[in-house]
Design a protein around this nucleic acid. Sequence first.
DNA 1: TAACTTCTTGACTATGCAGTCAAGTAACGT
DNA 2: ACGTTACTTGACTGCATAGTCAAGAAGTTA
Lengths: 185, 185
Amino acid sequence: MRADARRNVEGIRRAALDVFRAGGLTTPLDEVARAAGVSKGTIYHRFGSRTGLIDAVVEELVAERIAGIIEAVDALDGPLLRFEEYLLRTWLLQFDEPAANDVLMRVLPDSEPLTTLFDRACHFGGRLLHEAQAAGVVRADITPDDLAYLILERGVIVRACDQQTRDDYRRRLDFVLRGLRAVRK
Amino acid sequence: MRADARRNVEGIRRAALDVFRAGGLTTPLDEVARAAGVSKGTIYHRFGSRTGLIDAVVEELVAERIAGIIEAVDALDGPLLRFEEYLLRTWLLQFDEPAANDVLMRVLPDSEPLTTLFDRACHFGGRLLHEAQAAGVVRADITPDDLAYLILERGVIVRACDQQTRDDYRRRLDFVLRGLRAVRK
DNA sequence: TAACTTCTTGACTATGCAGTCAAGTAACGT
DNA sequence: ACGTTACTTGACTGCATAGTCAAGAAGTTA
């Protein structure tokens, strides 16, 4: 690979990290090209497709955030707290990081790296749900699908309602969490 | 107005009712034109703009549905039941009728007829919220804005997640309603 | 430095929708 | 039946984005 090509690949990667971080994985490639100081054609040349580029950066972009949540929540005590903190932190991540939101919304269902990240979060959430239900602290009729849906929903909302403040968003999450708890006898 | 023009206006109105009923107010005008058997230009000629056409049909398309909810809910007893039935029926209306959903989502914020319909629903909901909070049966920290948001959210979700079954959608609404109730002492 | 190969470019196609307008068509009045 | 005027048409512009490719630029090697 020629020197200029190597330079460009790196530049594009870095630009993609910046641009996708700010605007999510659906940002037009022209913006990445502009940020990298190359033409769109070069990106296609080097990464094959839009998805190719995303695959090449999404891990670095998002993995740490999801791992951070899993780690932090794993350190907490109590099945209800753990379950609710998992959801809360995930929902806030969706608000804060468009790219993470895109992963959690399965914007590119065919991308392996994206699927891996998504599954990691889902699997962990499923475990917490199971434990919380076993302890009788969240409603028994919530399914793992419902859980995925609760996250997908929030993603859709975050995307569409980008004028709401983080505080309002955060406050309203409490309503949702409350609805998932088991009814006190 | 010439006879053919009058005929066309009526044809377009009727086509718009059909098409918007099925696909919501954001359906491309070409589809309305095709359904009416005229060209797109004729629609613009007769109704001035996309919004003009929508204004001309939205009342007939949606008013009855919203009035129906208000009437039915008004006949119920108990502040909690009334509040929850209002939300539930509104949310189901959003699922069943894309056009009603567009109204409730304020897809065209500048259209008077749309605003009128929206305000009617909002005002009624606000009253129910107030009564329910006065009776201590729903959380006191829910604002009228939150209520509008709960409806907007659902609208966004319905639009984006069109593959979910009505039954699943319905079942999940219970989670949300549950989260709005006052905490039992 | 010249030949050779790799690489980059940006104009191009394609898609989908909003909205416009010159030119053609058809209803109406006399 | 013919002129006038209202009306309709559909091709056109404009916009935004994905993806392609022939031609020109530039790194590499001898």
